[in-house]
Amino acid sequence: MYQHKWVSGEAIPLPVGKAVCIGRNYVAHAQELNNPIPESPLLFIKPSSAFCDFSPVFMINEQLGEHHYEAELVLLVGETITAQTEKPLSSISGVGVGLDLTLRHLQTQLKAQGHPWERAKAFDGSACLSAFIATEGLELSHALEFKFWQNDQLRQHGETDMMIFKLGHLLKEIAQYFTLQPGDIVMTGTPQGVGKLSIGDTLALQLGDCEKVQSQVQSRPQQF
């Protein structure tokens, strides 16, 4: 069962809450999928059942269809954030990286029909998360970067300076609609370079100058 962890391996004494995710927060990513540039943050939610550890392996259910990776900077909420919270970044206790897994073909169908994305975005195991580093002594308003490799090929490189909506603005916008509670996470959007995962892929995520986190994609046992 998933539990938030520090990079030291120690469990973080917070519940596992929801994930509030940001769509189309990088111009180049919106363009690569032929989507319009949003005028305000595009928000959607994943339940706690979507959470899984990125490393050392994670499993995908091939019966659901083709899985695409979307690497993202992830914020861990340590204290409640509401619309009245003046400095929401100070309520973030950890930062990490993760994959927002997407059933791309299904998402395209749902979008064409004007339906919600949950089937394509919020399925079990669709939020693959690294361990978190503590934000104490880390200035979240400064530039943060992350990278994602697939089979030793750099696929994605994101920086907070490249985001359409910066971290503080995102938290304020989210809190207008959803109270962020301790143990919730915010997946802040993916840069260009998204693509298909295959069984046996070797993957790596890196936050800033931290050590790379390695993983491998495996097939989830058939359930029906």
Rank of each mutant, 00 (worst) to 15 (best):
A83V: 08
K147V: 08
V7G: 08
K87S: 07
R24L: 13
R24G: 14
T108G: 00
K111G: 04
Q214Y: 14
T202D: 02
E62A: 11
G17W: 02
K166V: 06
T135D: 12
E32V: 12
Q216L: 04
H4S: 02
K212I: 08
H157I: 08
G183S: 14
S90W: 03
G195R: 05
K212N: 10
V95P: 00
G200A: 07
F178Q: 01
Q84R: 06
A175F: 02
G168K: 01
D209C: 03
G158E: 04
E39K: 15
G78V: 09
S219D: 05
T102C: 07
H142Q: 15
V57E: 15
Q107T: 06
G114R: 05
L110N: 06
L73W: 09
H4Y: 01
S48M: 11
K5F: 05
S8F: 00
G94F: 00
A175L: 01
L76D: 08
R220N: 00
M59N: 14
G137P: 12
Y2E: 06
D124F: 05
K172R: 14
Q153D: 11
L101K: 07
G168Y: 03
G114W: 12
G65C: 10
I37N: 13
G17C: 07
D209G: 09
H29P: 15
A127S: 10
H169G: 05
K196M: 01
E211F: 11
K46E: 15
H29G: 13
L99G: 11
M162Y: 05
E86V: 00
N61H: 13
V97I: 09
H169C: 06
Q223C: 00
R155N: 11
V77N: 05
K196T: 11
L167F: 13
Q107V: 01
C128Y: 09
I60L: 15
Q63M: 12
G193H: 10
L14C: 08
G183I: 03
L171V: 03
V97S: 03
I185K: 01
E32H: 05
S130Q: 06
K172W: 01
Q206A: 10
Q107N: 02
W6H: 05
H29A: 11
G94E: 06
C21M: 08
I164H: 00
A175H: 01
G114C: 05
S219L: 14
P191Q: 04
G96T: 09
G195H: 04
Q109E: 15
T80G: 02
C52S: 15
Q84V: 03
V57G: 10
E70V: 07
E145D: 14
I185S: 04
Q113L: 01
I37S: 14
N35F: 12
S91V: 10
Q214S: 10
G65H: 08
P13D: 14
T188S: 00
G78C: 03
L144T: 03
S130L: 14
Q156W: 00
K111S: 08
F146K: 10
V217R: 01
Q63S: 12
L203C: 11
M163K: 02
G96Q: 00
P116H: 14
G168S: 04
S215E: 08
C52H: 15
G96I: 06
I174S: 05
S49H: 10
D209A: 07
Q3E: 08
I133R: 10
P38S: 14
D152K: 15
Y26V: 10
M163C: 02
G96W: 02
L103G: 02
L110I: 00
L129Q: 12
